[in-house]
Amino acid sequence: MTFAHLIMLGLFLLGFWCVLTETDLIKIVVGFNIMEASLLLLLVKMAYVPGGRPPILFPAAPDAAKIVDPIPQALTLTAIVIGAATTALMLSLIVQLHRHYGTTDLDELREIR
């Protein structure tokens, strides 16, 4: 476990804490986004090669060890897109909820029910 991993763990727990304790739905969305960001950082970190070069085969490419694995970066991009879609859907649901009840606070919503 390196320093970078500790930061990611910290971010993940921060996001999780936010999801568990906040009562405002918008803040819960923010919490989820922080959790997701920590996972994406971990994914990028996994593929990090110090002094690495693009994964393109030249006839005279000397050290294959320095080639950066492109898959984690492709996965990160895909995960970002999925995260954006999820966030958008959740926010649109919150907007609809606000139209019906006039609040985005979970405690107030419970009282209305």
């Binding site: 999820t86 649901l93 919150i94 609809q96 909820l97």
Partner: peptide, 13 residues
């Protein structure tokens, strides 16, 4: 439906 969907999406995420 909206309340149910919000609950569902939180668990799904």
């Amino acid at each position: 439906g909206i309340r149910a969907a919000l609950r569902y999406i939180v668990f799904s995420i």
